[in-house]
Nucleic acid binder design. Sequence first.
DNA 1: ATGAAAGCGCTAACAA
DNA 2: TTGTTAGCGCTTTCAT
Lengths: 344, 344
Amino acid sequence: MANDPTNKRVTSFDVARLAGVSRSAVSRAFSDDAVISEKTREKVVQAAEELGYRVNFMARSLKTQHSNLVGIVVSALDTPYRAGQVKIAAREFVRKGFRPILMIAETEAEVESLSAQLFSYNIAGLLVTSATPPSSIFTECHKLAIPIVLVNRGKEVDGVDNIQMDTQQGGELAFEMLTSSGATRLAVVHPQEVSFSVTGRADAFVQACNRASVPVKEFLSTGQTYSDGAEIVKKIGPQVGPDGGIDGVFCATDLLAFGVMDGLIHDFGISIPEQVQLVGFNNIEQSSWRGYELSTIQQDSEAQSLEAVEMMLDRIKNPSQKAKNVVHPVTPVYRKTTRNSHGT
Amino acid sequence: MANDPTNKRVTSFDVARLAGVSRSAVSRAFSDDAVISEKTREKVVQAAEELGYRVNFMARSLKTQHSNLVGIVVSALDTPYRAGQVKIAAREFVRKGFRPILMIAETEAEVESLSAQLFSYNIAGLLVTSATPPSSIFTECHKLAIPIVLVNRGKEVDGVDNIQMDTQQGGELAFEMLTSSGATRLAVVHPQEVSFSVTGRADAFVQACNRASVPVKEFLSTGQTYSDGAEIVKKIGPQVGPDGGIDGVFCATDLLAFGVMDGLIHDFGISIPEQVQLVGFNNIEQSSWRGYELSTIQQDSEAQSLEAVEMMLDRIKNPSQKAKNVVHPVTPVYRKTTRNSHGT
DNA sequence: ATGAAAGCGCTAACAA
DNA sequence: TTGTTAGCGCTTTCAT
C-alpha cells in the first residue's frame, strides 16, 4: 500500500485500467445521474477504493463549466449574531453538496474586490451578508450568470434574490414594548454608519414615536458593539432620570444594549427597568444570560440562513426564475429590562 | 459593452487576439514570475480589462497541479473564541492570496469526511481547529503532500505542524490565581468530553492542587458553553460555603464560568469573590463586560491564528522541512472574580 | 522575449 | 450499456 508522497496521483485512467473498463465508465460511476450498470459501477468503485481515487474537481469543473464552490462574503464574523448566521449557512451548503469559500469583508471596497476574486473559481453562487456590494458586482454576476443572494442588505436590487427582516415591524415592536409598559420619553441608539437593517429599525422606531407624538432622542454610536454602547452611554446617562428624563431606550443591537445597560447601572446608578426600560435587537445568546436578561426583538437568524441557501440552490437549478424578495417577521422577547412581562 | 448573460465567457484566447499576441503571452502577463516585456504585458492587461477577462483558476489549477484553496475545519463556530480565531485566519489567508473553504465539523467523523472531501480540490493546505482528525487524514495528507496544521489539537503527531497553548502553564496559573488570594478548597469544572486543550488545562490544575496538597473537587459538565455551566452549578452550589466548603473554582472555559457565576449568584445567593473566587479561561470579549468582569487566563487567539497560517505557508513553500510544534504562553488576567488585584 | 504545441483530468456527444 | 473522441482554459517546455 504505497504511501510514499512521490506517488503519482491516481486518475480515472488508472481506475479504468484496474477495473478493466473505459474512463467514461469511471466518470459515470461517480456522476449522480448517469446511466451505468450496477455491475460495472461496483467494479469501478472497488478499484477506486483500492487505489484511493478521488475525482479531481478542478478537472470536472473545467469541463462542466461550473463548480460546487460558493462564496460567502461576511463582515464582523466575530460578532455572535454573524457567527451563528455563517455557521448555519456553511453547514447547510456543505450538506447540499457545496463548498463555501469564506471571505471576510468589512468595507464596501473589500466586498467588491473579494467578490470579484471569487469569480475566478466558477463559483455556483454568492451569499453576501456584510456591506451591500456595489452595483458592479451585480452586473458582473448577471453577466456570468452567477446567482447572488443578499441577507439583510436592503431594498430590492433588480434581479437579485434578497432576504431580509421586517425592519418596519422591528421598530414598531420596540416602540410598543417600551410604551406598553409605561415609558413616555424615549431614546434610540444606533450606529452612525448607515446600514439597511440596523438604521432601518431605528428609523422605524423614530417614526412610530412621531406618529404617536412620543418624544424621542437619537444617539449615534460609533459602531454596534458592546464598547460602542459603553461609550455612548456617557451621553445618555445624564439625561435619564425621574424628572422628565428618558425612561425608555431602544438599542439597535443587543451588543449595544449590553454596553448601555452596564454603563447605566454601574456609572449612573440607574436601576433597570424601574427607572429606564431597555430593549435590544437580535436576541443573541448573551441576551438570555442571567447577568443581562435583556428584553429584545428576535430575528430568527437560523431560518434566515437556511432560507438564503435554499434560495440560492433554487436559483442555481432554475436560473431564469424571477428574483425573490422575502421578508422575515420579527418577534418580541420580554425579559427583565422591560416592566411588562406581557402575556405574548 | 455587451452584458447579456448569453455572452460566451472570455478566455485567454480572446484576450490574445485582441492584444495581438499569443495565448502564452497573456498567461505570462498574469503569472507572478514570468518573463515578459513590460510593453506586451501592458497590451495584454489593457485588452483583458476591456474584455473583462479573468484567469480561470480551475484551468490553472488543473494544469499546475495545485490551487490556492485551503481548508479550514472548525467546530463551534458560534462560540466567541472560535469565531475570532476563524475570522483572523480567514482574513490572513486571503491577504496572502489563498481562499479558505470553511467546513463546520462538530464530531470526529465529520472532521474525517469533510477533510476528505477537500482533497478533491487540490487544496494547498488544511487548518484544523475542531476535533483532532483521525489518523487516516494524516496519512492521506502525507500521501497527497498536503500540509496540515493543527491548532490546539494536542500532542505532536508525526510530521504534522502543530500550534497549541501551554496547557500546563494554564492549569498552574489558575491554581495560583485562586490560591494566592486565599482560596484553600478548590474545584474545577470541565466538559466530560476529552479534548486536548480543555481537558489538559483542567488536568494541569488538578495536578497543581495535588502537588500542593490542596483539596480539589472535579465537576464534569456536559459541554463547554454557558448553559452547561448553568447546569453543573446545581451540583457545585450546595458545596460552596463558609464552613469547609469550596472557596475557589476554576472553569475550563469562560463561557462555563459565566454560567457557574450566574447560578452561584442568583440561585445560591453566593457573593463573588467574597465567598468563592472564580477563574475562567480564554479571556473572550464577554469576560470584560461589566456584568461579569471575570478573572481569567488569556490565550492570544489572534497570534495563534496568524502563526497557524504562517506555518502553513512556510510549509507550502518548503514542504520537506521538519514539522514544527510551537506552544504559546498564556497570561493571567485579574478582574473582579478573584480577590487579588495582583500587580501583574 | 515570444509563439507553437502538448497535455493537466475530466465529461459529454456520438457511435457502436 | 459501453467505449471512443474531442475538447474545457490554462501553463509550460521547446524552438525561434
